Amino acid sequence: MHADDFRRDNYGVVSGLRDGGYSDDMTLAAIAGAHKRLITSPPVAVFPHPLASDLSFSRYWNYLRKQTFVLESYISRVNWLMNRGLFSFHCYLSWGFVAPYFMAAVHIAAALQIYIKGYSYEETTCTTSGLLLASCLAICTLTELLSMWNLTRIEVQLCNMLSPEAPKLSLDYYNWSLIFVALLVDNFLYPISAFRSHFSQSINWSGIRYHLKNGKINKIERNRGRGPKFTDLGGKHLYGKKGAPPKATFLSSLARSLCQWHQPKKYEV
């Protein structure tokens, strides 16, 4: 996909997003796949996104709803098939990730109950196969966390090398126990959020509620001042610290316009 594809609205890229389109990345991927076009990306593009320190469950839930709501928007048959496939595949993998830990907890609880009541394994019908599987799951979990730690270490080093002027990132701030719990909670709640988005067909995005119909935005309700003031989990304000866009003076607006007018365009020869 090139810039001319957007300027000339080739394959309905611009019109599809303008006429009720919602998810730009999924829509663009569907259009490119349907017309055998390629989407290129830089080989190295790592952007650290630190989380805010005042996160709440409602704020996290709204963020998760945003991630699943985009799968309900589409502009073509190919786009709809891609979203339905991701919807089903992600729900299957999410609960497939959580289910072994639930079963392991059941086996461990049963073994602890037998131990507390003083029964021997010969006196019960319980077998040790469940505890063996729980032990294998624990080994796999440690291997997974070790792999995540190594990957995060490489990404932190890469960020520090590519941006030496920025504050140095460190692994000291990572609590891997909480990260593991977050993985379980996120994968457990993802299918619930996906079904919630599927049946509600609406989302509150930073105080603006979007309603979908046949995969496209058909209604927008603006409730400034009553919706959440955060746009994501990074603690950014939508309209500044006071909840309103900063007022610019006439001279500053004029200076900004002159700077933009003198700046050469990339497509000019």
Rank of each mutant, 00 (worst) to 15 (best):
L17S: 12
D9C: 07
R37S: 08
A30E: 01
M26Q: 04
K36A: 11
H35K: 05
A30C: 01
K36C: 06
V13R: 09
D25Y: 07
I31R: 00
R8F: 15
S15E: 15
N10T: 12
N10P: 13
A34M: 14
T27L: 03
S23R: 00
M26H: 02
L17A: 11
S15Y: 05
R8L: 15
L28N: 07
M26W: 07
L28D: 02
V14G: 06
R18P: 15
R8N: 06
S15N: 11
R18N: 10
S15I: 01
N10Q: 12
T27Y: 08
D24K: 03
H35N: 12
I31P: 00
R37F: 02
S23E: 02
D24P: 04
A34L: 15
G33R: 08
M26N: 02
R8H: 11
D19R: 03
D25G: 09
Y11G: 04
V14R: 13
G12A: 13
A30S: 05
V14L: 14
D19K: 03
L17F: 03
G21T: 03
D9E: 10
T27Q: 09
A34Y: 12
R37N: 08
A29K: 06
A29S: 10
D24V: 01
K36Y: 11
N10M: 12
R37I: 00
R18I: 14
G20V: 02
Y11K: 09
A34C: 08
S15K: 06
D25V: 13
S23L: 01
G16M: 05
D25M: 08
S15V: 00
G33D: 14
R37Y: 02
R8K: 14
A32C: 11
R18K: 13
V13F: 12
N10G: 10
A32L: 10
G33T: 10
V14W: 15
V13K: 11
